[in-house]
């Protein structure tokens, strides 16, 4: 699949924003990471909204006809893309209302604050889930058609949110740094399972695509002399050795470096600058992860363009 830069920015930024909003509300409501200062909560909530806004605006850039984008809220009964759009728009005022109540009651946990905070957690995680399901529901791309896809989207969104929260809150907060470390490790394990999963060939082949199930089938001629919409959109190939190196780089940036710095932070031997650096690197890593998610996906239409398997 052709990796569209706008979609990559959308999924990474919005995912991190929703992850941050959910973690912020959990941290505030349960006080597991100690009592957070109200100004800091508002600041972080604002950051989450900025990330979400950047993502949602970016998502409209890949539309060929954006003037009809408002119609995307209509088919939520069947389309995951529509569900994502609806939930994203619902979550926005929910987060705003929660931050407003947080400011009004100055961090006190009144009934309304608890209700709005719980809604923030629910809506944010549900929105990341729907983002993942946009891809996971497609039977035509076996690398996406797995429950691991939404699981990875949620894990990486919460991971980036957790890293942001840890960096802003300060690494002295052992409980927070420890939780962030656990989330990073869980996200790494999920991604490793995903790579194992997509490494095994299965599903449709050139035989099922042409209906000749008991013979070798080879493409003689694709029937067009220049590229088409189909070859541009689905015929994206990267050399497997380069993919392997990019996977390694992605693992180092997204998981290994953050885990290393968080572990050091738990012992108390790391500067705030190092934590901020590692947050930026983790964002780069997850952008790379999203790029790989697209670049490694093989659409079954490739079988009509000469591929033997997907």
């Amino acid at each position: 699949m052709h990796p569209a830069f706008s979609v990559i920015i959308f999924t990474v930024a919005a995912g991190a924003g929703y992850g941050l909003a959910a973690l912020l509300a959990i941290a505030h409501l349960t006080s597991v990471f100690g009592t957070l200062p109200v100004t800091e909560c508002l600041w972080l909530g604002g950051l989450a909204l900025v990330l979400i806004s950047v993502g949602l605006v970016s998502s409209s850039f890949h539309l060929a006809n954006p003037k009809n984008a408002w119609r995307a809220f209509s088919r939520f009964r069947t389309s995951w893309l529509s569900r994502e759009a609806v939930l994203a728009v619902i979550t926005y005022p929910v987060i705003l209302a929660y931050l407003l109540s947080l400011w009004t009651w100055q961090g006190e946990k009144t009934g309304l604050v608890i209700l709005l905070g719980s809604l923030v957690v629910l809506c944010s995680l549900a929105t990341i889930f729907t983002t993942g399901m946009i891809y996971a529901c497609l039977k035509t791309i076996r690398q996406w058609h797995t429950a691991l896809t939404p699981a990875n989207y949620i894990a990486l969104g919460v991971m980036l949110g957790g890293l942001l929260l840890t960096a802003v809150q300060g690494i002295e907060n052992v409980m927070l740094a420890g939780t962030a470390l656990v989330v990073v490790l869980l996200a790494a394990i999920l991604k490793a399972i995903y790579f194992f999963w997509i490494g095994r060939p299965s599903g449709s082949s050139i035989n099922t695509a042409t209906g000749f199930n008991r013979a070798t089938v080879r493409l003689l001629d694709v029937g067009h002399s220049a590229g088409t919409f189909l070859t541009d959109e689905f015929g994206y190939h990267v050399a497997s050795l380069r993919l392997w190196w990019l996977r390694v780089l992605m693992f180092v940036l997204s998981f290994i470096l953050p885990a290393l710095v968080l572990s050091l932070a738990l012992i108390g031997q790391v500067s705030a600058f190092a934590v901020y650096t590692v947050v930026v690197l983790a964002f780069v890593g997850v952008v790379l992860e999203r790029w790989l998610f697209f670049a490694e996906a093989r659409h079954v239409v490739g079988l009509y363009h000469g591929a033997q398997r997907t």
């Binding site: 060929a64 954006p66 009809n68 497609l138 088409t228 919409f229 959109e233």
Partner: peptide
């Protein structure tokens, strides 16, 4: 054509490559 926003999602869902985006009209 009056409702399509050109998101390509239907082309992703089609296994037969039957849908093509008209880049000039965006649908």
């Amino acid at each position: 054509q009056d409702k399509c926003m050109g998101c390509n999602y239907c082309a992703w869902a089609c296994p037969y490559g039957a849908r093509e985006l008209d880049r000039a009209e965006g649908t």
